[in-house]
Design a binder for these strands. Structure first.
Lengths: 230, 230
DNA sequence: ACCACTCGATTGTCTAACAAGTACACATGT
DNA sequence: ACATGTGTACTTGTTAGACAATCGAGTGGT
């Protein structure tokens, strides 16, 4: 047995546990995940393991070609840029919309309070409430498709995070303060400013991740923020 | 046998053909797709049919609960609004970016010429080149994630289209003209105007679809365009 | 040193089967 | 008559075992 799993569907349970093991770093980048290995370690049949693997492949956490064994995805700097740009696309529009309705999601407030509460703790603990903050904003518009899309991006972000040990470059206090400012801008109905702040917020996180992965700093033109501002 | 299928992977081939049959309207909304039915009609094993069905469920073309037979998704007006809003989120940001780089995708130009060429033909033929136009714009930014997300939205849009017989409410000439205007705005670097025009373009298509499905017109506040403009 | 080839490992697919759950019809009780 | 319980057929979830096709690596020949 390779971990405790919950019970809804077996393939879902296996996939869920594999997900956690990938996020925790137990399964490193490019680690091979054979169907039979998964099957034996979870004591399930091979088709079940196959289905779980294919689920994670669809989520982008694993990659595999035809007739080749699945491996934990190895995201390079360009993937990180793609992911954060996609995040910015979705989330900036969401902020405009929330600001228009003056809707401050309770979940986001709670998440940011959680960040403040652990401001002196381990730097890696900030990842979960940070994701919860952003996801709460997205979910607040009540658009199932957008939530699903954002969810898949969050999964890839968490994958990146688990690859970067040097997460002490995360400035918890700054993150918390910017989140607070975002909430204030939403409440004040200043959507455009919120969108711009978010671009900076995500842009900084992105460039730190890219730098930690050995990538070279990207052109600022990648972000449409300057255009939006102009 | 229920249709000709190509050969890459059997499940992919089956899924692909089912997709076409759904888009063509051969499989109507809420039509039940039993695993054994699919298996026998394509002469494949049940696990293969199962995998194909699960693939389409993941794409949102089919829906199914646990232990219940899969059915062709029945999208209501609120789903249409969600889909078109998500499209607008992604595509408007893409337009800003393309305009910033003055990049006019060749594929989009070609697609719009195709629309002009069949301006006098059957109204339903406009769907394919129209989708190709928008997809070309998305793909032009070279962001794999965004292209994938948009692809899933396009699939759902095509599903909607196949449900609405009265597609003569599509004004081919107007569509073609607006596309042309979008390309011109991109070439001129006027991203903000392009984004606004796109909002109108998609908003009108959306409201016509919603009306054709018997839904009531939605609040214009659904679109963030007014905020962007303000 | 380089290339072809064989072999083990792995995946794709199938057949067969059983367990578990759902849905609908039927029977029962009030 | 209506609500409730039962049961049966159908469908899905999962497993086991098997075979062909394919990939990767190591082996051997030139």
């Amino acid at each position: 047995m390779a971990g405790r799993i919950a019970a809804v569907s077996i393939v879902e349970a296996v996939a869920s546990d594999l997900r956690l093991r990938i996020f925790s770093g137990e399964l490193p980048s490019a680690h091979a995940l054979t169907e039979t290995d998964v099957a034996t370690s979870y004591e399930v049949a091979r088709p079940t393991a196959k289905a779980a693997i294919e689920k994670l492949v669809a989520e982008g956490l694993l990659v595999r070609g035809v007739h080749k064994t699945a491996r934990v995805a190895d995201l390079g700097p360009e993937s990180v840029r793609d992911i954060y740009l996609a995040r910015a696309y979705l989330e900036s529009e969401v902020l405009r919309r929330l600001a228009a309705a003056r809707t401050v999601p309770a979940g986001a407030v709670q998440a940011n309070q959680d960040i403040a509460a652990l401001a002196t703790g381990a730097p890696l603990d900030v990842v979960e409430p940070d994701m919860r903050f952003h996801t709460s904003l997205i979910d607040a518009v009540g658009n199932e498709r957008i939530s699903r899309m954002y969810g898949s991006l969050v999964a890839e972000v968490r994958l990146c995070m688990s690859r970067v040990q040097s997460l002490h470059l995360l400035d918890t206090t700054l993150i918390q303060a910017e989140h607070q400012k975002l909430l204030q801008l939403i409440e004040a109905g200043r959507g455009e400013e919120a969108a711009q702040l978010l671009d900076q917020h995500l842009g900084r996180a992105r460039e730190r991740l890219v730098a930690a992965m050995g990538g070279e700093p990207g052109p600022e033109a990648d972000l449409p923020s300057d255009l939006v501002a102009g």
